[in-house]
Simulated scan of single mutants.
Amino acid sequence: MTEFRIVEAVALSPEETWRRLTDWPRHGDAVPFTTVTGDTRTVVARTGLGRLGFADVMDVARWEPPQDGGPGRCRLVKRGPVVTGWAEIELRPHRGGTAVRWCEDLRIGVLPALFDRPTAWCGRVVFRRALRRLLRG
């Protein structure tokens, strides 16, 4: 598996941060060549060009929206067949705003373990950019 973490602070309430980060279709606007659909049970991210691509199907294993300025957590379990692993978004109040911790542990089934480090590096770059874009509004 390939694990990476991204931590960002934002001057938004935990509730607004949650709203922006769990608006699944907006993730498609932030990740190149990807469309995303989903709800509080299942999320599907389809990445590709034309007929060439794959679906990252995720079950929502934990859905704990922040309440009254408190923390929140969402955990997605990637069920394959191409991408497996998990992703977790955790929000905590921080200095009048919110600290966001985005962690992923993933494996792209067609790639051998030799590609774990490059996959983690690419994931960190792509998802940091996506996270910042989602938080901008």
Rank of each mutant, 00 (worst) to 15 (best):
Q67N: 12
T22Y: 01
W86T: 08
A87Y: 07
D116H: 08
G69M: 15
V44W: 05
V82A: 15
T22N: 03
W63S: 08
V36C: 01
V31K: 00
W63Q: 12
T84Q: 06
F127M: 05
D59Q: 14
D29N: 12
P66K: 03
L131Q: 02
V44G: 04
D105G: 13
A55R: 14
R20Y: 11
G137Y: 02
R92G: 00
R129Q: 09
G48L: 02
A120E: 03
C122V: 15
R46T: 11
F54W: 15
F127E: 02
G72I: 03
D105R: 14
T47H: 14
M1A: 09
L106H: 06
A55C: 07
A87M: 08
G70E: 08
M58Y: 08
R124Y: 14
V7H: 03
V83K: 15
C122Q: 11
R19D: 01
V110N: 04
P65H: 10
R46Y: 04
G48N: 11
W102F: 10
E104Q: 14
P112W: 04
R5W: 03
A113P: 06
T22S: 05
R101S: 14
W121G: 06
T84H: 01
E104S: 15
V60I: 12
L114F: 10
V125K: 13
T40I: 06
R51V: 11
P32L: 11
H27S: 08
A61K: 15
E16H: 12
T119A: 09
R51F: 11
P14F: 06
R124D: 00
G28P: 02
T119Y: 05
V125R: 15
A99K: 13
E104A: 10
E64A: 15
G28Y: 13
A113G: 09
T84N: 08
G80C: 06
T40F: 10
L114G: 05
T17W: 12
R73Y: 13
P66T: 13
V44T: 12
T40Q: 15
R79V: 01
P112Y: 13
T37D: 11
A99N: 11
I89F: 14
R75P: 00
R41M: 04
W24E: 07
G69K: 15
G96C: 02
V126Y: 10
R51H: 00
V31D: 02
W121I: 14
P118E: 02
P32H: 13
L135W: 04
T119R: 03
V10S: 03
I108W: 12
G109R: 12
R46H: 10
R133D: 00
E88F: 03
L131N: 04
R26K: 13
W121A: 09
D29Q: 14
R5I: 07
T47N: 14
A99Y: 02
L131W: 09
W63I: 01
D29Y: 15
K78P: 03
A30L: 05
C122I: 13
D68S: 09
A113Q: 05
T22K: 01
R20M: 06
V43K: 04
A45G: 14
R75A: 01
R132Y: 02
G123M: 11
P71Y: 03
